[in-house]
Design a protein around this nucleic acid. Structure first.
Lengths: 95, 95
DNA sequence: ATAATACTTGGTAAATTGACCAAATGTTCA
DNA sequence: TGAACATTTGGTCAATTTACCAAGTATTAT
C-alpha cells in the first residue's frame, strides 16, 4: 500500500506524540540534562525516562554524551524547535 | 505532573502519527476528496478511513463539507504543509 | 575488591490504537 | 415509499504503547 516514506514520517511524529517526550525536548533545548535530572523533573521511574530518551535517540532527535557516571542528552538539531513553534502557533488558533 | 499543554501538543502529533493519515492529508492538500475516493486510494475498509478522518477533524486538521451523498474533506489550514516540509527535510538529512 | 550511584534492559500488566465486520443513519433516485 | 449508495458508529480482536519493578551493566570512590 502507501509509499514506505509515509511510515517513516509517521514514526517521527509518533516519537513526538507523548507529553513527557515533548517536555524532555523542551528541557534539553535549554541545556543538556542527564537522565536523573529529567527523572526528578518529571517524577516517574528512571527506567521510563531512559526508554523515552532511547526512543528519541533512535529517531535522531537527541544525542547522548556519556561522562562519568552520567549520560547527558542534548538536541541533535535545534531546528526541531522551529517545528515546535509552528505547532504551538497552530494550536493557539483553534480552541 | 507536566503542564497540560504538553498533553494537547502530544495529541496533535499523535494525530499525524499514522501513515494513512499523512497520506490522506497529502491527497486532500491537492484537492478535496470524499471518503470513498480516499478509501479506494488506500485500499482499506471505508470505516477505517472514516475513523481516521474523524480523528483529523477532531484535531482541527481537516474540515468536512457534506454535499449530496458524499462528505468531502479539505485541509482546515494549508499551513500544515509547511510543517510537513520541515519534517521531510529533517528526515532527509539523517539516514 | 566492594559499595554506591547512574543508567539500561527485560518482563509484565493495563490502556490505547487500528483493522475489520455488522448495523445504523442519511441522501438520492426511481 | 423503497432501493441503492455513502458514511458513521459500535463491537471485537490483535498489536502496540507505557508504566513499573527487578535485574544487569558501567563508572566512581573508598
Amino acid at each position: 500500500m502507501i509509499n514506505p516514506k509515509y511510515k517513516k514520517r509517521a514514526k517521527f511524529y509518533k516519537a513526538l506524540a507523548h507529553p513527557t517526550r515533548l517536555f524532555i525536548i523542551d528541557q534539553i533545548a535549554q541545556q543538556e540534562k542527564c537522565v536523573c535530572e529529567l527523572t526528578e523533573m518529571v517524577g516517574v521511574d528512571i527506567s521510563t525516562i531512559s526508554k523515552h530518551l532511547s526512543l528519541l535517540k533512535n529517531e535522531g532527535i537527541v544525542v547522548e554524551d556519556k561522562r562519568g557516571k552520567n549520560v547527558y542528552y542534548t538536541l541533535k538539531c535545534p531546528c526541531i524547535l522551529t517545528l515546535f513553534d509552528c505547532v504551538k502557533d497552530s494550536l493557539k488558533e483553534d480552541g
